[in-house]
Every structure is written in structure tokens, then in C-alpha cells.
Design a binder for these strands. Structure first.
Lengths: 342, 342
DNA sequence: TGTTAGCACTCTACAAGGTTGAGTGCTAAC
DNA sequence: GTTAGCACTCAACCTTGTAGAGTGCTAACA
């Protein structure tokens, strides 16, 4: 365990590096932070900290920068948990009130808020629909050969698709099929709807096999739509303001990576435990972001975790601020969403 | 009018500059293009071209680059209209076949294809819904206090929203209201649905005024959703590969501009005439893109123009390629969309 | 024994100066 | 009208020197 002075020095280094992005020397620390010791003493302590792996040097005569281990210690032991100010909180709440009219906009604006406040990239993973339950499906009339298939979930998520009416089927047939499917599947979560159940339904229905195949196909297609989770991204341009992304090539490869939405979705999904989690540098499993840090938080509706929000940026990020904002989202995003009947 | 040799020289300059992004000198032209004259002669011709405003010089001893006027002449008079190769065409058609399952994906993938092929930013403006007609609205059951309002257009566009059932109204009341509204509005284009008509409906319905206000509000809200046109963007990261965007600040301000979706949508909407249109440099009205060029093309369904696709990039873009791809989209995007019943 | 001043050393960033090469315009000869 | 030759210009690049911030080590001090 580090003694008090080493902790102060490490804290000074991390704090300064986060705000300036420049390596910190012993003299700078002595000047800016009143530790009551001379630069020489600080130098000795820094040599120790480097030996212990908390800080590192880019070249012999440069100042020190925090290592991943250093950031980890900072986040775990040095950072006092801060809350957002009343003013910030009411600002955010107003923002939601003014800018959001649909559920989608809540996600969109959440991404915007997060990236604006933290000056980093934000990710908002929309509730996965397969965690919610099938309520009913319905065919709406469109024209002689086409119909609108509408699928409704218990959370009020509605998906629709215009489909061709299979030849030989009347609109009444469709209604009958819908009724039967609803009777059997209503209330089941999308995760629980397996091919086996669908086969059962087929057996129960004494109609033409071909006909059922068609209905089945339609439902499956709808399920594909349903399960298609969405990821909202915010503040990708913030990247360009960060000095670690001066190098255009770096920016490019990073943005290219971001376009692989499903990759990111996967990373976020890994987190099943509740609360705010910080992953620093090479703690990240996915190699594309191993010189970045990610802070993620779940959000809940009626006590159940339904999605994840996250902030992604250089390891040199303002962990205190980011964590407090995500803590806020962790506690309040569910409420906001609830207003929109999801 | 320029004589043949001046035209060849201008063409050489534009071609070379498009492919290398470097100013071109008289010697380079003499070496690369076999014009049968010495660099000195070319120098004289270039001096003339500069006087005429077709090319310009960044500083005294640099080569020449095309001016906006030069590009304009190149596009209008020097560029021989090229078609895409059979191979490219079938590649694109396969792409659509493999990657698109929903209408939205057609737009998405169109943006991707355009930016991939042209290495520039692409814009796809989705058909404006207010050009199509209201077909019907319907209330679907959800729970005791909420209902799902579904609005269907004649093009098969379906929008839905979960809303609170106004206090004092039964589900039957809602059905009655829907029926009446449908009888009056069905077949009208969204452009034609004005407040006046909605007022008329209110007068005809001998129900509580408050009650109608609510129904009206719902429809209006739905209309807002309907009219909300979407713009798909593609290849924003391509920007970073272009040498004219080496400067990070430039990239940032450009990307910030792109986020103002509605601005771009406005620029695209300006084009009402059919076909492929090229706007070069300061020919653009919108100041944010005055050192860029934009090539845009309309696309049609059943002969009627429904939307616009465009490619946006530095004035130094490969006009021949961009124009041929957009010509292709102009002629074929409608077909692709038609498969998806829009 | 922990702290500090002093010193020699290292390395980056920056500015100044020099060289190279691609380009130009002008003039005179073909 | 075309071309060779020449003097000139300017960006890009390399080299060199210097300033400044930083380090580690040692010896002296409380």
C-alpha cells in the first residue's frame, strides 16, 4: 500500500495529466501542489512510483504520466465519489423535457448529453427486446395483395412490416392465424419463443402445412426485426478535440472501428452486474480500444436492468466527472424512459 | 472558347490534380502527357489559362491548380460521359440483394455504396412523406389506460405511437373517432391536410369539444412524425483520407456542420429538376461547403421524383466517376425501392 | 535517516540557416 | 509560333544550435 505522500504525488500526477495532457515533472508538482517538500524529494518518490508501476516515462528526460495501473489506483482509492451539482441535474432534466417527444429521441439525446458533458464518445444501448414479452400480432388491411403485419410487445414496442398476402389466403384466414398465434404466444418473452413452440402451434393448427410455413416465416421475420438491438452513438467529433487523436490515422482507424456497431454492442453486453463500471486501457478485452478507457453503467426499469450507457475515451479522461454523470444516468434514465411508456 | 491545345492542357491539369492533389507544373505536363510541345510552350498557354481564370497559382513558383471556373469547364466540356462497367453494376445489384431486407436498409446501403465507390461523403434524402397520402389510422388495444395509434400511408409507410387514452373516453369512442377521421381524410396527401379541414371535422362531429381536441392533437402529433424526413449519411470517415482535410480543425468544423442534418436536407431539396446536377465550390449557396463540390441526382418511383441522392467532397473530386455512379442511382434506385413496396 | 541543494546529463521543441528541386517569367534565337 | 536558356522564387527538407524541462546521483544537512 502506498503511503500518504506517494498517494498525494500520484494524485497530483493523474489530476494534472488529465487536465493538461502533458507529462508532469517533479518541479511542476512542487510548484502547483503544496506538498511541503522540494522537487528532489518528489523525484525520489516518483522513482519509487515508477518502480511500482503506477507511472511511466516516455523518454529519459520527460515528466511522468500515469500507467493503466496508476489510473486504476486513482479510480479505486484516490477519487472521492462526487455527485453532480443541483444545477447540472436540473439542466439535464430540462433538456430531456424540451428535446424528447419519442422514445428514440430519449436515447439520441442521452447520447448527446453524455458526450457534451464529458467531451467524449458516448454509447447508449437500447433495451434488448428479447428480454420483453410478446403481446400480440395483428394484420391490418392494406390492399388486395398486401397486408401490414404489426407486432406489439408488453413494453409498448411496436414493429410493423408490409408483406405480401400468401396466395390462396384470404384476409380472414390471416385473422384466424393471428388469433391462434396470439393465444399461444402472448406473454412469452422473445427469448422463450423457440422453434419448438412454433412447431407445436403448427401441429395444433389443422390447416395446410404450406400455409403455416408462410405464417411462421412472417413471424420469424418479425422476430428478426424485434431482436435487432440498436446502439446510439454520440460525440464522435469530440474525438478530434482530444490531443491523443492529433494523428489523423489514429482517428480514422478508431472511427472505422466505431462503425462496426455490433462489436461495440457486444462489449457493452458483457456487463451483467448492476452499477457503474470502469475499464481502463488494456483491461478492455477488445483490442481496438486498449488504449482507451470505458465507463459504463446499466439502467433499469422497474428494478430490472434493461440497457447500458457508456462513455468511451482516452485513458486520460476525467473519471470523476464521467462517473458522476453515468451514476446519474444509472439512477434516472429509467424514470425518463418510463414517461415514454416503453 | 478555348482552342484545342488549351483544352488539352486544362484537361491534363484537372486530371492530374484530381488524382495527385498536387499543383501541376509545365514540365510535369510535358512529361506525362504527350502533347508534342515543350514545357516552355505549355508555360505560355498556362499563363493564358490563368489570365482567363481557369487555373490559379498558390504562390509564385508553384504549379497550377484548377479554379472553380476550370472545374466547371472540365465538367461541362471536357468530361466525356462515362457509364459504369458491367462488373460494377452487377456488383452493386448483388450488394442490394444481399444486404437489404427493409426499406430503411436500402437507404442505408445506398449511402454506404456511394461513399465506398466515390471515397466521399454521400447523402440520401428519403422520400418526403407529405408527398404521399393518408390512408387510415387505427387504434390498437394495449392496456386499460393506453392505446397504440397506428397511421398508415398509401405508400405503405406505417408509424405508431403508444398514447394515453384521454380520460372519459372508451376504446369504442376511439374507434368511432378513427372511423370518422378516416372517412374524411383518406386519400388526401399530407400536404393537403390543413387545419381548416380538421376544424371541419370537428364541426361535423357532435361530440364534446375537449374530446375532439384530444383526437386532433393525436393526429397532429402523428403528422409531425410523418413529415419528419430522414437523411442518411455515409462515409464521413472517408473525409479523413482526403489530403485537403489534413487539418484537424477543418475536419472538425466540417463534421459539426454535417450534424446539422436539416441544413443539408434543405440544400438537397432545392433541386427540383430531374437528373444529375453538379455544383462546384462557391456555386454552392450554403457557405459551409463553398470549398466543396456536390453532385446530386434525383430518383423516381413510377416516373415521379421522390428523393435525392448526393455525393459531397472537395472540389478536387473524380467528377467522372461520381457522376456515373449517381447517373446509375438516378436510373435504378427507384426500381430497388419498388421491390420493398414503398 | 530522511530531506535537500547542486551538478552533470538527456532529450524535445523550436528557430535559424543552408540546400535542393520544381516551378515560373522573360528574352533571344530558331 | 516555338523553343532553349537563364535568372529568379518559393516550399520542403535537412542540419545545427540553443533553451528549457526534466532526470539521477552525490554529498551535505537537520
Amino acid at each position: 500500500m502506498l503511503d500518504k505522500r506517494k498517494r498525494s504525488i500520484l494524485q497530483a500526477i493523474v489530476d494534472d495529466y488529465i487536465s493538461t495532457a502533458e507529462p508532469i515533472g517533479s518541479r511542476t508538482i512542487a510548484r502547483k501542489h503544496d506538498l511541503g517538500v522540494s522537487p528532489a524529494t518528489i523525484r525520489n518518490e516518483m522513482a519509487d512510483l515508477e518502480l511500482l508501476g503506477y507511472i511511466e516515462q516516455l523518454h529519459t528526460s520527460s515528466g511522468r504520466i500515469p500507467s493503466a495501473k496508476g489510473y486504476r489506483f486513482y479510480v479505486d482509492s484516490l477519487l472521492s465519489p462526487t455527485q453532480m451539482s443541483e444545477r447540472e441535474i436540473s439542466l439535464i432534466k430540462n433538456w430531456y423535457q424540451e428535446k424528447t417527444r419519442h422514445v428514440e429521441e430519449v436515447f439520441q439525446e442521452t447520447a448527446k448529453i453524455l458526450s457534451k458533458i464529458t467531451s467524449n464518445i458516448s454509447l447508449v444501448l437500447v433495451p434488448q427486446v428479447n428480454q420483453c414479452a410478446f403481446k400480440y400480432l395483428k394484420f391490418l388491411p392494406f390492399d388486395d395483395c398486401r397486408t401490414i403485419l404489426v407486432v406489439v410487445t408488453d413494453t409498448g414496442f411496436v414493429e410493423n412490416k408490409v408483406i405480401d398476402i400468401p396466395t390462396g389466403l384470404s384476409f380472414n384466414d390471416l385473422q384466424r392465424i393471428a388469433e391462434h398465434i396470439n393465444r399461444r404466444l402472448s406473454g412469452l418473452s422473445f427469448e422463450d419463443i423457440e422453434l419448438s413452440i412454433l412447431r407445436e402451434i403448427q401441429n395444433e393448427m389443422l390447416i395446410d402445412v404450406d400455409l403455416f410455413e408462410t405464417a411462421l416465416g412472417i413471424l420469424k421475420q418479425a422476430l428478426v426485426v424485434e431482436k435487432n438491438e440498436r446502439l446510439y452513438l454520440g460525440g464522435t467529433t469530440q474525438l478530434l478535440s482530444q490531443p491523443e487523436f492529433k494523428n489523423i490515422e489514429k482517428v480514422k482507424s478508431f472511427l472505422d472501428m466505431l462503425e462496426e456497431e455490433h462489436l461495440l454492442a457486444n462489449i457493452l453486453q458483457k456487463q451483467k452486474n448492476d452499477g457503474v463500471i470502469v475499464t481502463i486501457g488494456d483491461e478492455n478485452k477488445y483490442s481496438g480500444i486498449q488504449d482507451c478507457s470505458m465507463v459504463q453503467a446499466t439502467y433499469r426499469i422497474d428494478g430490472q436492468v434493461v440497457g447500458t450507457v457508456a462513455v468511451l475515451g482516452p485513458t486520460r479522461m476525467d473519471y470523476g466527472k464521467v462517473m458522476s454523470v453515468l451514476e446519474f444516468m444509472h439512477n434516472h434514465l429509467g424514470e425518463v424512459l418510463k414517461k415514454y411508456k416503453i
